[in-house]
Write a protein that binds this DNA or RNA. Sequence first.
DNA 1: AACCCTA
Length: 337
Amino acid sequence: MVFATPYQTYIPLPFDSGEEHKDHEAVLSMVPIHIVTHASQLPKEFLFPSSKNHLIVGFDCEGVQLCHYGTLCIMQLAFLDAIYLVDVIQGGEKLMKACKPALESSFITKVIHDCKRDSEALYFHFGIKLHNVMDTQIAYSLIEKQRGRRRSSDNPISFIALLADPNYCGISYIEKNDIRVLLKKDPKFWTYRPLSEMMIQAAVDDVRFLPYVHHKIMEKLNEQMLWQLAIRGALHCRCFCVNDKGFLDWPPIPTIPDNIKAKGNALEEETLSIINVPSGRMGLVIGKKGASILSIKNSCNADILIRRDKGPSDKVFIIGPVKQVRMAEAIIRGRVC
DNA sequence: AACCCTA
């Protein structure tokens, strides 16, 4: 049976293809786009992860109000030779179940820009504990820190800005702004079937550069930074998945091996701290026009995430090196109590 | 009381 592939796209190849291309623009490769409604349409090496076959996959999810609740509509996977749009609406739970081992596997690196919300949705909708992510947003801030170039406002970099940076990709993706406007007008944008050409284009654009960005990031990070990145990614994956049992059903966070720690001067263990903030008191943490939280972020240099809950209390998550996290903890507790 | 940022 021949499966016709009506759609194709270009991806930049994440490796040098010979001396001639050195210092030139990345080589573009034309790859097919597969729309997946059944697991059999996905590559075997993805469905059955193996230590003999480590994969790097660009990863993203689209949906409606994607978080604890909401609807997951499409899961995009970008390989070097093809892009797969996993249609979660058509394929349903059965299809996601088939993808679970890959999403939880240490042998498959999921390259993703901001894993928190996607991970939260995968966990609460399908019981998937997203594991082994390479979060490009975290990587960017670590590389900036490594260069001693802390951004003044210390805000996470946007996907558009990351792609625009010539050190990572150097492409303009302003179409994303149009999609944002469209999504605002019609939040159900991702639910319609069959997928329109525009939906396919937008979904593909969100992942097709990620394997290349991964390659550019790997060039810049040393062994210690890679550990820090992996651990911080793992903490971001689970932070919004907290429930009454904490993280009991999640695997333990890896720790940086001593021999690697010894090589890096002042390399500190990464940690996650959660502070309950009674509803209505979050304003104390955020402050006028965000002045308070901004000053905490700047003085502590930790990731500070806020989640408003429906329950009696909201939560602040603090992620970063232990010392910085303790400092932020103290300031926030002081404001709230 | 204060409501930032990202997606």
